[in-house]
């Protein structure tokens, strides 16, 4: 029943003389959660940015729903139904929660010259979506700058979930979240997957990845180390792969298996 939404083949990305990605192949099917794992600097964020239209790959092809495609801006990717929670969240502290939530995709009412930002509808949707994620906003016109780090992350996630029609990309969405919000995010991933959306989930936390992932791809220094299905791999093996193998095995001895 695999129904591939987006397929990325041999993606390379160079920043000047820095080779951030050196041939990464990756795909997401509808109704699955594909986890992308790897150490700091492995190239995970760079890779998902080529998927969400922020970066143009130096080399490689993107196939979206069977057709070759090249996104020339994040707006293109969004219009295709790809929503992303970026690691830096893409939030504007001086703007209100609602204005951030709908940034670039404001709901409108009226026609022609009278076409305007439907602030009331926007406020209502925003409050409601945040409530679903377990956060009660004080007011929708509260500036994002006054939110806690985790609350900001939740706004970014709620926004992506709301707009992610086909593919939802989450770059370390749970790094600043508390227990309740983390389980909320994980169950949200499960929920949207059930709706047939393909989820790309980046995390350093193997336990979180194992909890929701269907497939796991490990990146190391810009290259794919391989992809495994959920029942083909244990969390200890994933852990090892992420760290590039042997070093962690040595560390593990001295730390007594606590990582």
């Amino acid at each position: 029943m695999t129904n591939t939404i987006i397929h990325m083949e041999g993606i390379k990305k160079h920043f000047g003389n820095v080779i951030a990605l050196n041939g990464v192949t990756f795909d997401v099917s509808s109704g699955e959660c594909h986890c992308l794992l790897g150490d700091n600097g492995a190239g995970k964020s760079t890779f998902i940015k080529t998927m969400s239209g922020v970066h143009k790959p130096t080399e490689g092809t993107i196939t979206f729903e069977g057709k070759p495609l090249s996104f020339s801006s994040p707006r293109d990717a969004m219009e295709a139904g790809i929503a992303t929670v970026f690691q830096d969240l893409a939030m504007i502290p001086l703007m209100s929660v609602t204005r951030n939530f709908f940034m670039g995709r404001e709901p409108t009412k009226g026609r022609g010259l009278l076409k305007r930002f439907d602030v009331d509808a926007a406020n209502e949707i925003c409050m409601e979506e945040m409530r679903k994620m377990g956060i009660n906003l004080r007011a929708p016109d509260q500036a994002v700058g006054t939110l806690s780090g985790g609350e900001r992350q939740t706004v970014a996630i709620a926004r992506a979930v709301y707009f992610g029609a086909k593919v939802l990309i989450l770059d370390e969405p749970t790094s600043a979240l508390g227990v309740r919000q983390t389980s909320n995010v994980l169950s949200t991933i499960d929920r949207v997957r059930g709706q047939g959306i393909g989820v790309v989930f980046i995390s350093h936390n193997v336990r979180h990845a194992m909890a929701v992932g269907d497939r796991f791809t490990v990146l190391n220094r810009g290259q794919t180390l391989g992809t495994a299905k959920k029942d083909e791999i244990t969390s200890a093996e994933l852990q090892d792969l992420m760290a590039g193998g042997q070093e962690l095995a040595k560390l593990e001895g001295s730390l007594g298996g606590t990582i």
Binding site: P74, M91, I92, M95, M103, F117
Partner: peptide, 22 residues
């Protein structure tokens, strides 16, 4: 009261974040 207004605030607030948000 218009989407364009929201884009102006977003662009000035953080053009990178705004651009990434479409």
């Amino acid at each position: 009261r218009t989407p364009v207004g929201n884009w102006i605030f977003a662009t000035g607030g953080d053009s990178n974040a705004a651009s990434n948000s479409g």
